[in-house]
Design a binder for these strands. Structure first.
Lengths: 235, 235
DNA sequence: TATATTTGTGTTCTTTTTACACAAATATAT
DNA sequence: ATATATTTGTGTAAAAAGAACACAAATATA
């Protein structure tokens, strides 16, 4: 095959995109959005949203379009995850699926949570998942692993939180995702020392009992500076 | 689009795999294999080896098959890199390319280096690359970034070296890839402390001037143990 | 006004990382 | 055979980063 890109062969392979979208709230933890299948195969099972790529659109565009159509979600962070292409992953025909990994912010998550049911989409806690169609459990496993891996060296955490948040939300997110307790003082010391969080003057509006704390905000330029220096965030 | 996987649409998109294969030798540094295009577009330019996926084979199989056909290479390490799918990346039709990242060992690299010319394939130092066809420079940039990123937390270095190697080869590889000097004593201390290298009794056969050193060997079980404990190799 | 809940903060000890120089073994040239 | 150049092998001390740890202040609620 020296004729790469030169032969004109008819290939009967179809390309889809799938999107594993995460949301987070302090109350519910890390959630992922799934849709209920209405037709066979796997009728009635839950699946990761996605669909066919159109010939003239980019892969990213396809993801955003499908998400919009199936779930009404507009994500604010998107990155390519992995491409799944085993021959028999769809029983009907050969499908190559380019999976993406998306995140919505807490406020958006809460808003969506209220009305995604209207479009047969639903949020599930990543620790309490239903049986999934196709090889979607595998996609989800890869995505969760990636999310977990990313937060320890890149502050993807910010994509999950709102623009302003109390420090405890940030800490809880890490503790939840890493599934282990975190020492509040050491964690704060480290994060503040990196300079990626700015402490605001505002206090959080009291959300229950306890002392109200300051709000914090992600310092994006500082973050970019650190990344350009090749610095990892081993939190 | 709730009909994911239910519509039977005709998609005129083609799927290819590409393989960015790296080799290393102390004398030549980090090398990558390219093939010379014999037909338009980009006739005469160099390109990354690859080709169309067949309907019944896995993506990995397609990569290995194409590599074998175009370059005669059998890699010993392969992982998926990224999927490139911009609409106009091939001027003729829509092509989604699943790029892979491969490595051959030094001995294999030297052997191939001698005869890959026979099949219009050639090794290039990653610092002295020719102009590439299509968006292949971008694929290569992503692959090099990945290679560089990987060696600092996973010992992919071993995939590039022979089974037995003098410590200086290992050190030079890291120094070359990271493009910065490495303190020999501290580096050795760290690596040996991790336990991923076993010191052999054999000495390297003298390869020029200087004191002959011991040979070392990758300790795979120790490595797996560390990985299962979630340990990263920040070398 | 007492109680429960959450936030905020500093020090000490341990571990890890960095900086740094000289002697031993070989090959080559004279 | 002797001198010279090249490469390997090794330890210590100072600095930085990480881990362990407890109590007072601010609010909501009973």
């Amino acid at each position: 095959m020296h004729y790469l890109y030169c032969v004109s062969r008819t290939q009967n392979i179809h390309v889809t995109v799938d999107a594993i979208v995460f949301g987070y709230s302090k109350e519910e933890g890390v959630m992922v959005v799934l849709i209920k299948r209405k037709y066979p195969p796997f009728e009635g099972d839950w699946a990761i949203p996605g669909g066919f790529v159109e010939e003239t659109e980019s892969l990213e565009h396809a993801v955003e379009r499908e998400l919009q159509e199936e779930t009404g979600i507009q994500i604010n962070y998107l990155e390519q995850l992995y491409t799944f292409g085993q021959p028999k992953r769809d029983p009907r025909k050969r499908i190559i699926s380019v999976a993406y990994f998306g995140i919505v912010k807490t406020s958006e998550f809460k808003r969506l949570h209220a009305d995604t049911d209207a479009v047969a989409a639903q949020w599930f806690n990543i620790k309490e998942l239903p049986k999934l169609a196709f090889d979607h459990q595998e996609l989800l496993d890869v995505a969760i692993e990636r999310l977990r891996g990313k937060i320890v060296y890149q502050p993807v955490g910010f994509e999950l939180l709102d623009k302003k948040f109390p420090f405890s939300d940030f800490e809880n997110l890490y503790s939840t995702l890493l599934d282990r307790p975190i020492d509040r003082r050491n964690f704060k010391k480290k994060v503040m020392h990196l300079g990626i969080l700015d402490k605001l003057e505002e206090k959080a509006k009291s959300t229950g009992s306890g002392r109200p704390g300051n709000l914090f905000q992600f310092n994006e330029s500082r973050y970019k500076q650190l990344v350009s220096q090749g610095i990892h965030f081993e939190i």
